[in-house]
Nucleic acid binder design. Structure first.
Lengths: 167, 167
DNA sequence: TGAAATTAGGAAGTATACTGATATATATTG
DNA sequence: CAATATATATCAGTATACTTCCTAATTTCA
């Protein structure tokens, strides 16, 4: 504080000029998510599946007969959202759902033969979308970027209803 | 979802069979967007506004009497989405909308006095959410991360129905 | 000048993402 | 064992984000 005069200056200057939208991490991450979504849909056009739907399919492939809450936690979505998506995937014949014998509250999901086939066929397209998203960065930066993303997500993984959320 | 910070990570496995969700940039960006959204809502709880709503308010503050399509482009959302959000903000008395005299197709939006007041009062809370999101990274990495985000977004800005022009 | 193309906004529909409430099944405990 | 607490799924409601189709106003150009 080198200012000597005590005249009242702008008490709260127009700080939105100091930090415009395009310099805010939250804005950039939202836009990058939109961009990846668009790239994914473009690369996977023939399959007509969204990134989250494909995430659920790959998770079901690794954990057949999983319940909806566990699946939602694995994929990082809300349980209510997971139920919606599973209903659509079931309607399309990619997933089958059956009540659990062990715990009749649970509804277990698994891939159908068609779901398994689609999931495997989509893998390369998904990979192309990932690569394309990061392609503006030089390879060593791509790696650093992924590492930072992992750190940021794992440090705050409890947020966003992704992991166990008692009401 | 159980990976620890100090666990060995393989960000870009070349294994053609399985690239787990946790190593996919698209998945991590979606999760980080959820996390920022949750942090923003938490920091800005008293205002009951979402990140996108606040983005529109700050943009209206810099460009009063803007049309909906230009506004949507500035904020990086779809024009149909912008119309929805403006309708809600108008309903809450934060925004007023009136037809343009110059071009009667256009509907122009501007902040109300209350909208202006809220926007200014929210600035610090928004900043806290930004800082909190990046806090797991050391300061020099925070800067590098933002730079990479900007590069990735500007390189693919044509995707996701937004036109992005930092001024 | 008048027809065609373009542009702005809206309506309807779908998908993602979350909150809150409820019904039912299971688990706990007094 | 009965009362209570917890867990699972579903439903209703809201917000974001996009698509397609539509109307109306403006601009272009033949």
């Amino acid at each position: 504080m080198k200012k000597q005069d005590n005249a009242p200056m702008n008490p709260l200057p127009l700080d939105s000029e100091t930090m415009p939208l395009w310099s805010r991490a939250g804005f950039l991450i939202r836009r990058l998510n939109q961009i990846h979504y668009a790239m994914f849909l473009s690369e996977c056009e023939e399959f007509d599946l969204t990134p989250v739907q494909y995430g659920i399919l790959t998770e079901l492939r690794e954990h057949p007969d999983i319940d909806q809450i566990s699946l939602a936690q694995e994929v990082g979505i809300d349980r209510s959202n997971a139920a919606d998506i599973l209903r659509r995937l079931e309607k399309r014949g990619l997933v089958s759902r059956h009540p659990s014998q062990r715990d009749r509250r649970m509804k277990l999901s698994r891939l159908t033969a068609e779901g398994e086939r689609i999931t495997l066929r989509m893998y390369d397209s998904m990979r192309r979308a990932q690569d394309k998203l990061l392609s503006p960065l030089p390879p060593e930066d791509q790696n650093a970027f992924i590492m930072m993303l992992m750190r940021l997500v794992s440090a705050n993984n409890h947020l966003g209803r992704a992991v166990f959320h008692p009401t």
